[in-house]
Design a protein around this nucleic acid. Structure first.
Lengths: 135, 135
DNA sequence: AATACATATGAACAATAATTCATACGATAA
DNA sequence: TTATCGTATGAATTATTGTTCATATGTATT
């Protein structure tokens, strides 16, 4: 849970006068007003939460591998399990997470269900991430 | 732990002949060979793991908020705590995570330590994520 | 209807992780 | 040196999450 209950800061002494290390000219980083100003510049609480949720979904190597597999082509559950060498159940659970996050679509054909990526943004985000890691 | 111990598949019957639902012409999705082919197309295990680790770091709303605050300017720990309305300790712990992931740099000035983002890729990735969420 | 197969799901367990609390470290000022 | 301030960190607690196991659902085939 992330609830932000306490506010035990220590610095930020709420003084009306310009606080001590305001004289650090370069970035003008210090206390009351700037803190408030930046706080208000932050995107909406809800958007930030959604971004974190999205990344959380990407933050598991099984799901990363599923997504990368789906970059190649749509696949049924048991084939994904085969590619990753994991149980059908584990894959199905993770596909549910991806489904809830609207990151995959699916299509039924008889008994088998084919999953594919919902959106081009996903590939873009992943490419950036790959680039970042490879410096 | 993600160890891939078992391989209880059910389908993927390892038949030499072309398996049943290979006749699904559109995507050609079915069993032994395609599964192996796609498995080999996946990026290195290590890279996939690193990508997941990177996203895992992004996958917490406290860290997302810290990063967004740092988009505005470099900041000291207690100011970040002020902006997010959280304890210095909680912020410091999270900064450590960001530091270990090489996502932030820091610079000491007397007693205070100023943190800033390490890399432009971060902003790009976040922008993509914001776009994705806003459809 | 009965069987077989692909997929989905609930419960349990094990592992991970975020925050708090207390305290340590490092730098500055008196 | 001692006191103070900003920051870092270890331990404990609580919450979350990925996988497994067993079983259910849904679709076709006989």
């Amino acid at each position: 849970m992330e609830e932000n209950k306490k506010t035990v800061l220590g610095c930020e002494e709420q003084s009306t006068e310009i606080s001590e290390h305001t004289d650090i000219s370069e970035t003008g980083s210090s206390n009351p007003d700037i803190v408030k100003a930046i706080a208000e510049k932050l995107p909406d609480e809800e958007l930030l939460y959604d971004v974190a949720e999205l990344f959380k979904v990407f933050g598991d190597s099984t799901r990363v591998r599923i997504i990368c597999a789906l970059f190649e082509s749509e696949m049924c559950v048991c084939d994904i399990a085969g590619v990753l060498n994991m149980t059908q159940s584990a894959i199905s659970h993770q596909l549910r997470v991806l489904k809830q996050a609207r990151l995959v679509k699916y299509r039924r054909e008889g008994k088998t269900v084919f999953y594919s990526l919902a959106d081009g943004h996903i590939q873009t985000i992943f490419n950036q991430a790959f680039e970042h890691i490879m410096e």
